[in-house]
Design a protein around this nucleic acid. Structure first.
Length: 644
DNA sequence: ATACATACC
DNA sequence: CACTGGTATGTAT
């Protein structure tokens, strides 16, 4: 989480090639838009050692903590293996020389693909949930507060952060750190309403903007910047940067006005990855512009701690740290060696992002590609339970709930409150924000679709209409593979899956399959543990291998004897158009149609995550992934700016 | 195809 | 009191 800086009237800044922040000549625009300043403290004044001690004392000896220790031990072991390989690489050795050649070729090819002709902006609402609560209850404003429950927090305001309270922190630990902390239960409807207002602003700057979560959006503002430049060739880079700066300031100002004073932070850059990183650098209530030239970009990314890269989480950071790599420039310098120690994908991905290169086009969506979810799941945490009958009852409930969601909006609507289960309306969802600092980690990223109010205590997670008020159609789907997730009382997680002969969304079929898997595992556990029962703290049911009813192919249409033409070209999440469920980056389906919103979102997710993950075994970290070729047909700014 | 692990919000 | 929930994807087997 970017160190919180004070926020009032920050001069426009950009980062120069050495990673330092410089001022542009564009101070005025935001000077009068931004007013209040959260005290700069943020986490800056937190006594980290003390916080760590408290957190540790609260966790020590718990099942959770013991599980974490096992996990850490495993990771450390992997790192040992990596380190040995790393050190065994000899200068001048065959392997390393070969890798060096690969890395050189790779870099040259990547530089070829660098694009500086699109302007991306990532907007991130500041401590979103908490900000909404504070806006609506002034008495909370000067009070340390967080949104969530005693189990888990979603987000905390800055007063609370001073005590070390963070997103994704269990509420009971937060209360130890800050006894006066006020924990407010989430009011998702309010957050959604606020997000909707913000989105209306985003749409004015980019009609195809994508909301990645309630509190975060991605915008391609290239056209808005062009307009700002009024068609005049902004031969000067400074004038171009100023225009970008002003557009971002305008977005933030308008969001604040539209939402009744909520603030946001934003980053602008030639690609979404850089914009995302930049959005975190001047929060809260600030913005950061990454200059549109390769030299500055290399300096900017090079100085970043690896953890700042979307896709590098706690584990990858630790692994790379074990090799002595701390900032992005380190991996750039060690690209060859990394090719010898990491999986090819991970190595290539790291190399590419270390150069600040990422997809900058709108890709798939522009060709009318359609987003289709790959899986749908529900899971539930409960008190340790060792009775198989009780566990199976939960499985049945999850299965029927999932079945309902898979049957689309009609089924969900008809189900009404029957699915009830009001009793478990507990904490519902809470924190987010894996691990480290980062933004505000408002999680509720994507409300489960077809969610029936009340089941998990998240009332009305999805409204019946989209942002434009059109009725939302949630397509029915079936899945071929069912997976049950079991979290033991020890926090160890197991998963067992089975592929069915036919795709289904029947509650009975799903339930039966899941129960069988759970029963099997229960037996296996008893056999292996001298008859001790399998005690769980969580059960989950997931389906993948999905086929959508509105996504049938030609033969099916013919056989069904009707046209499944549901898509009107609107940006419905799941309009039908016969697109395949896979990526269709190059599929030129429906040229003139508006891209499906979700497809764009999917694109963003890919760009940011594609690279995450890694796996333990031998290869420590993430992977890489080549992006589909840059999309064409986009207006370029090259007429306005000289691109180096 | 299955299992596990990581990441993101 | 008490360490979430949902989706995606990489890697290994």
């Amino acid at each position: 989480m970017a160190a919180e800086r004070d926020s009032d009237v920050r001069a426009p800044q950009a980062v120069s090639s050495d990673g330092a922040v410089y001022e542009t000549a564009t101070g005025r625009a935001e000077a009068h838009y931004y007013h209040f300043s959260h005290d700069k403290a943020g986490m800056g004044s937190v006594d980290k050692a003390k916080v760590a001690a408290v957190v540790h004392s609260m966790s020590e000896g718990s099942s959770f903590y013991r599980n974490e220790e096992r996990r850490d031990a495993r990771i450390q072991q992997q790192i040992e293996g990596m380190r040995r390989r790393w050190q065994a690489l000899r200068e001048g050795g065959l392997e390393l020389e070969g890798a060096a050649a690969t890395a050189r070729r790779e870099r040259a090819a990547m530089e070829t693909r660098r694009r500086l002709d699109r302007v991306w902006v990532v907007v991130d609402m500041d401590m979103f949930f908490a900000a909404v609560e504070m806006r609506d209850k002034p008495e909370l404003r000067d009070q340390p507060m967080a949104v969530g429950g005693t189990g888990m927090l979603s987000t905390a305001n800055y007063a609370a952060r001073k005590f070390g309270v963070r997103s994704a922190m269990p509420g009971f630990i937060a209360l130890k750190l800050c006894p006066s902390l006020v924990i407010v239960r989430p009011n998702y409807d309010k957050y959604k309403a606020a997000a909707k207002l913000a989105k209306q602003v985003f749409r004015r700057f980019d009609p195809q903007c994508v909301a990645l979560s309630l509190d975060e959006a991605y915008l391609d503002v290239t056209d808005a910047v062009s307009r700002k430049l009024g068609g005049l060739p902004a031969a000067e880079m400074a004038a171009f940067h100023e225009a970008v700066w002003d557009v971002v300031a305008a977005i933030r100002r308008d969001v604040s006005v539209a939402t009744g004073g909520l603030t946001c932070s934003a980053g602008a850059a030639p690609n979404a990855m850089l914009a995302k990183i930049a959005s975190d650098m001047n929060k809260p209530d600030g913005q950061c512009l990454v200059p549109f030239d390769a030299g500055s970009i290399l300096g900017f990314v090079g100085a970043l701690p690896l953890r700042k890269l979307p896709g590098i989480g706690r584990v990858s950071e630790t692994q790379l740290g074990g090799l002595g790599l701390r900032v992005v420039a380190d991996v750039r310098d060690e690209a060859a060696r990394l090719h010898c120690v990491l999986s090819p994908r991970m190595a290539t991905w790291l190399h590419r992002v270390s150069l600040g290169i990422a997809e900058s086009g709108r890709s798939g969506s522009e060709a009318g590609a359609q987003y289709r979810r790959k899986s749908i799941s529900l899971e539930r945490t409960f008190r340790d339970e060792g009775s198989l009958a009780a566990l199976q009852a939960t499985v049945a409930k999850l299965a029927s709930k999932l079945s309902l969601q898979m049957q689309g909006s009609k089924a969900a609507a008809e189900a009404g409150s029957s699915g009830a289960d009001g009793r478990q309306a507990e904490a519902g969802r809470a924190g987010s924000e894996a691990g480290a600092a980062e933004d505000d980690g408002v999680q509720a990223a994507r409300p489960p679709r077809g969610h029936v109010p009340g089941f998990f205590g998240m009332a009305d997670s999805d409204s019946d209409s989209d942002d434009a008020g059109r009725p939302k159609v949630r397509p029915a789907m079936r899945g071929r593979t069912v997976t049950v997730k079991l979290k033991l009382a020890s926090f160890k997680v197991l998963q067992r899956s089975a592929t069915l002969a036919e795709p289904t969304n029947s509650a009975e079929v799903i339930s039966a399959a899941c129960k069988r898997l759970v029963a099997q595992e229960s037996e296996r556990f008893k056999a292996a543990h001298g008859g001790r029962p399998l005690v769980l703290r969580l059960l989950g049911v997931k389906m993948h291998g999905l086929v959508f009813d509105d996504d049938v192919d030609e033969e099916e249409r013919a056989a069904a004897g009707h046209m499944c033409k549901l898509d009107d070209g609107s940006d419905e999440d799941d309009g039908a158009d016969g697109g395949s469920p896979e990526r269709a980056d190059s599929a030129v389906v429906g040229q003139g149609r508006r891209p499906v919103l979700r497809a764009v979102l999917d694109e963003r997710l890919r760009q940011m995550r594609r690279h995450s993950q890694q796996s333990q075994q031998q290869h420590p970290a993430k992977r890489a992934r080549r992006q589909p070729g840059g999309s064409s047909g986009q207006r370029s700014l090259s007429g306005f700016v000289s691109i180096s």
